[in-house]
Each structure stands twice: as C-alpha cells, then as structure tokens.
Nucleic acid binder design. Sequence first.
DNA 1: ATTTGTGCAAAACCTTTGCATTGAC
DNA 2: GTCAATGCAAAGGTTTTGCACAAAT
Lengths: 143, 143
Amino acid sequence: MQTVEKLTDTLKNNRLKITPQRLMIFKVLENNTSHPSAEEIYKKVKKVYPSVSFTTIYKTLETLRDLGEIKELTIDKDRKHYDPDISVHHHFICSDCREIYDIHEAFTANIKLDDSLRKDFSVSGFQISFFGVCSKCSNSDRF
Amino acid sequence: MQTVEKLTDTLKNNRLKITPQRLMIFKVLENNTSHPSAEEIYKKVKKVYPSVSFTTIYKTLETLRDLGEIKELTIDKDRKHYDPDISVHHHFICSDCREIYDIHEAFTANIKLDDSLRKDFSVSGFQISFFGVCSKCSNSDRF
DNA sequence: ATTTGTGCAAAACCTTTGCATTGAC
DNA sequence: GTCAATGCAAAGGTTTTGCACAAAT
C-alpha cells in the first residue's frame, strides 16, 4: 500500500472521496504487518470513530483491494485477512495462536513456472502458505 | 485417502461406525480430483440418500480430516474444499470459474526450508496456491 | 448540486451445535 | 444394550446488500 498521503491522491484520481473513516482505516493499515481481519480493523477504527460500521470497513477494504493497494489473504480458514504489503512474499500461519507471519525468503526465486504449467494456465501470481506452530506457542507448550 | 475398503477398516479400528451415508461420502471422494466443496458432496450423496443432511456431510468430513484421510483446502475465499489426495502437491485456482486444479511439479523440490525459517517456526507443511485464469476460461474469453 | 460514502438493519452464506431419534455394533 | 451417527432446527460468525441519510467534492 502507498503512504496515506499518496493514497489520497490515488483516490482523488479515481473520483473517490476521502472521509475521516477511510483515512483512519488507511492509518491502521499503513506499515501494518499483523495481517488484520476486518474485525481487528473495525475495533481500531471504532476507538476513534465509535459510530463506524462494518459496512464501511468492508466497503473500504473492497475499494483498496480493487485499487490493488492491499491483498486479501485466504490462508485462515475462519476469516479473511488483509495485507497492505503487496510485494511478493509468503506467509506462515500458526495453527495454535492463528497469527500470520511474513516470510520473505530467497528460496522463492527457485520457483520457476514450468512450461507445462504455462500451457494450461495463465498464472498471475502464487502464494505459499506455511503451516505449523510458531516459536512463541511451541515455547509456551513446554510448561 | 485410502480406498473405501481400507477406510472401513480404519474406521472400525477407531471404533467409528460405517453407515450407508458415510460409505456414499467415501465413494464420492474416492479418486476425486475435483476438490469438491461440502455442498457439492452433499448434492451427490443426496441423489442416493435424499434425506441426508449437511450435518452428516460436515461431521464426516471432519472425521476424515481428523483421521488424516483428507485435506481441508483454504484456497477459495468463499468456501472450503476437500481433497482426498493427501500427497504433497499444490493447486491452481481459476479466478474466473473458481475451479481448482492439481499442480504436481518437480520444482517444489526446490523449496528448502531456510535455517532462519526453522529457527522461528516449526513448519509442518506448506502449500502453494497459484492464481490466474485456466485455459478453458481464457479461450472462452475470446468470443 | 451531484455523487459517493456511511450506517443501520436485514439478509445471505457457510458452518457448527443442541438434542431427540435412529441405527450400527 | 450401548454408544455413535443422523437429521432437524436453530444458532453462530463472517460478509454482503438495500436503502435512507449524510458528507465530500
């Protein structure tokens, strides 16, 4: 996602309106690496704008996704998560605490799209989901 | 997933009961590479057992997953899909028709778990989701 | 003034659960 | 006879939608 400042320009260029609620959602997402769910964003925005609705959260997230500013993550079986980091990277989800961690690793360069794959599919991207238990949870398991 | 025959033994060994509904669900899943959703399984079972319920479908899928016989796929943002092929492989989901295809490719061998990754996480598995449009859909787009 | 965004309430979905009944063993 | 499975209805949780009103441009 761009900076909030640049993002407001992008909205203007698309004849979209800049509202306090939206600005707050942008601020919550800016530099956010916690992969929040809609509810987590809602709760944070609600602290500043108590009357904000889920409708606004979902609509704004949809708008940001359509602008290509954020990515909707389908990795948690229970709910969607949102990622303002649209660069190529992958995720680890802890089966215990459900937290999602970023994985920026060099090995991803080793994934070459095979010709047979190219023939059958027009691949626009891929995403690796790692499963397991994070060190925080595996440590606490010992006690 | 094992063959239906072997699966019945596994159930017996776990003191689980073999019912006509379950057998039908097993048959629907056996050698099924279409990654069906619960509803798709429900519809097929319903043709033979019209009074079958979603409860039975979901409960049986849960049992099979807990036995390690099938995998629950979190790749489609709208619903879960079920895969009786528990061998290591990956998937391509068409953003147009939502169909999920298997990807069995040699390049997956190139993914080595980095030491830094091993240090922070106890990785039990990973799964690559490819996104894009399948050839069926990209062909039909032309008309 | 126009047009988009907001928020409420309700709906739409998918999935799970409580419970009485049925059926497998 | 015992215990697990089934099926119904209801509930739960997430996400979407219709619509009137508010706010941004």
